[in-house]
Design a protein around this nucleic acid. Sequence first.
DNA 1: AATATATGAATGAACG
DNA 2: CGTTCATTCATATATT
Lengths: 173, 173
Amino acid sequence: GAIGGGEVERGVERKGATYVMTEGQIEELRRQIAAYAAICEQLAEMHRDAAAQQESLAGMRNMSNVYLLPPPPQVPRITKQRWIPTSMQLQILEREYSQGIETPSKQYIKDITSALSLHGQITEANVYNWFQNKRARMKRKRQNDTKSEAETESRDQKKANKETVRVQIDDPD
Amino acid sequence: GAIGGGEVERGVERKGATYVMTEGQIEELRRQIAAYAAICEQLAEMHRDAAAQQESLAGMRNMSNVYLLPPPPQVPRITKQRWIPTSMQLQILEREYSQGIETPSKQYIKDITSALSLHGQITEANVYNWFQNKRARMKRKRQNDTKSEAETESRDQKKANKETVRVQIDDPD
DNA sequence: AATATATGAATGAACG
DNA sequence: CGTTCATTCATATATT
């Protein structure tokens, strides 16, 4: 019995916001992910085939390092506003951070900026700011989490209440 | 593969026709889709490059339309629950602001949050954001008003200007 | 229903 | 570094 069960999960849930999705939305997500996965697989296979036949095709050789090579995605802006990282740039930055790069050195910033510029307009200042903001916001998040954990240390009841509220949401159809 | 996974399903809790997801789960989904999108983009680009150079590669041709068709770049329509202040909460907040509280201290935010929670669900972040938005929008309004005062342009011109700003952006290649 | 606006939230950049 | 500002994104609500 799921409803009101509160047997939600391991320590996954935080006291942060929760989100509600409909079946249709979940389905849509699955479809998108499946579609991307299929396309990636096909493309990758095509490249393997092609590479096997024609090893000297320019630009194709070191596919293993997919993230570091190719294309400039979209830089449509004429009016220079604030930097908006492309999904690729973000992905790379997030990965670097998650792998322990929290306060990159000047040289590191130079390098990664140069790598990221293959995926869109970017400056060293952008990268510097990104890491700075990341650190600050991660830290604040950790503090909030820790604090609210401490608050509810002996009060899981409150949490239960919160869960209960959501249960009331029900089906319009 | 490394990217796919069924973790989503495990964590999703069934509740009538809606599901509740944690921030972490949503984040994970977004990451997955962003990752696939970025990889597809790269592979497609590489493929185009390669195809341009070597059009008659066996095994490549009959699949060459693969990347042309599907992937919807749209990110999931996840309905995020955002705080909607009750009229009572709004009244109190407006009053505080009008009485000179523009940038409340952390402690002040704590206090007011706790007071406001008597009138409905609310978090410190909600309060913080409210004041932040209030400041920004008040400032903007003041600036607009002042500017239109100085200008002899018609009143409607002002709004037209605002619209015009966006028009410049565009044109990828 | 489709578009426009109001406003909560996220985030790049700047400040002290 | 911590905090705040400025801009943008996303969603709820209003308007047509």
